[in-house]
Amino acid sequence: MTEIARKVCMLGDFGVGKTSLVARYVRNTFSDKYLTTVGVKVDSRQLQLADGAGLKLVIWDIAGKSVIDGANQSYLRGASGLILVADGTREASLRAALGLLMQARELLPDPACVLLVNKLDLIERWEVAPATLAEIRRSLPVFETSALSGDGVEAAFAALGEALRP
């Protein structure tokens, strides 16, 4: 039987925790040392959907940027899903994530998307108001996540997996 696989790209400003989220999801690990991603790292994880079907998520962790430039355009080709990531302690990173979504929609036909607002463990320092996310939630699945604790991470990837159901 041919394996069903979907390419998904992590998109978001630098330092929001894209690499940490992938590490938490794929390897269940976390490091608090910030290491800038240059280029791309491809990981994958087999996922079981709610109806029991299997799906392989091929996750592209690409360098964080607030706009999609030439290099990122080539990385995005062929992607079926997007994981937009913002950092709750930096309101600007949420605007960047939404801006990236707009740009990506011009390159990809109707990609499945989820928004992860990361660093829930630092809630006392969040600049993003709950009402803002309540508003965004009307048009986009939103997950508050912590790559450090793992909260929300499984649920977010699972939701994207369901949206990518063949």
Binding site: L120, D121, I123, E124, W126, P130, A134, R137, E144, D151
Partner: peptide, 15 residues
């Protein structure tokens, strides 16, 4: 684990 403030935030952001 996650603080009470995080729980409150999520409750409010979920309406």
């Amino acid at each position: 684990g996650l603080s009470g403030n995080a729980a409150v935030y999520q409750l409010r952001s979920q309406g």
